[in-house]
Design a binder for these strands. Structure first.
Lengths: 135, 135
DNA sequence: TTAAAACTATAAAGCTACTATAAGGTCAAT
DNA sequence: ATTGACCTTATAGTAGCTTTATAGTTTTAA
């Protein structure tokens, strides 16, 4: 199959596929005489793996790491689990930070209604004076 | 004061200050005969405002918008509040998305203990087979 | 006094994960 | 013959800095 079909199959853009190849995440496929890339089902699986990892928020570097584990199936999967644990704790700290941020924003927003001029705006004043009780 | 002192005062790197100037977020300061930038207290306040906005997660474009409101204090502050409301809802949807992601990651992680080879790893299998019940 | 350390300047590249644009070659159908 | 859809490479743009390179200036220590 050619790049456009693969792209449609997995739901990515063709440029993204070329990008992954260039980044070493997808093996370079064979070429037709005219230079067109020819993909196999294996490539489709590889690409789908990458996309699922991306949906899970893994970085390309982390995906690369996972691929290296896949290529060497004899080692224990401790490293895979550790990578995921790291990622989970990363996501959790993001959530915590965003929740704190939301609280701050809401309290800032509560300091002004819409019926003022900018010079009396509680929001701008709040930011300017720096009375942002940081966590 | 020179750029290094300003940087230390506000807690940013000197390059960041030059970057903000280049982006039009910080007015170009006067220069000494040797070309060194000379900052006033006003610059310090402006820079502190920018940093507080950044801590609140506002983009440079949004900060630019806020600055334009500051420069024109006669208009009502509806726009300021709208900007903040938008940002709050953005943060909230980020939180929701991350919480869904966390659930997914935790359930994936639960599909494997550490005592397997990579070829039997529940995590890798889970990603590969795509049994990720998406939201 | 001089040499090193610390500071300043500009310009350009690097980072992440793509997306978009440009300029062109290939192929099937009209 | 030419239109349209597809493919190729190379390059630039996105956000918000950070890093690197190269060079000039000031301050401090020997």
């Amino acid at each position: 199959m050619r790049i456009g079909q693969l792209a449609q199959l997995v739901g990515v853009e063709t440029q993204t596929i070329r990008f992954y190849e260039q980044q070493g995440l997808l093996p370079p496929p064979d070429r037709q005489d005219n230079g067109y890339r020819v993909y196999t089902e294996k490539h489709g699986e590889g690409l789908a793996f990458i996309r699922r990892c991306r949906i899970l928020g893994l970085s390309l570097a982390e995906i690369h790491e996972l691929q290296s584990y896949q290529d060497d199936p004899h080692q224990p999967c401790t490293a895979v689990n550790a990578l995921l644990d790291d990622h989970i704790s990363h996501v959790r700290s993001q959530i915590t930070a965003l929740q704190a941020l939301e609280k701050q924003l809401v309290s800032l927003r509560a300091s002004c209604n819409d019926d003022r001029g900018v010079e009396a705006c509680g929001v701008l004043a709040g930011i300017s004076e720096g009375n942002m009780h940081q966590q």
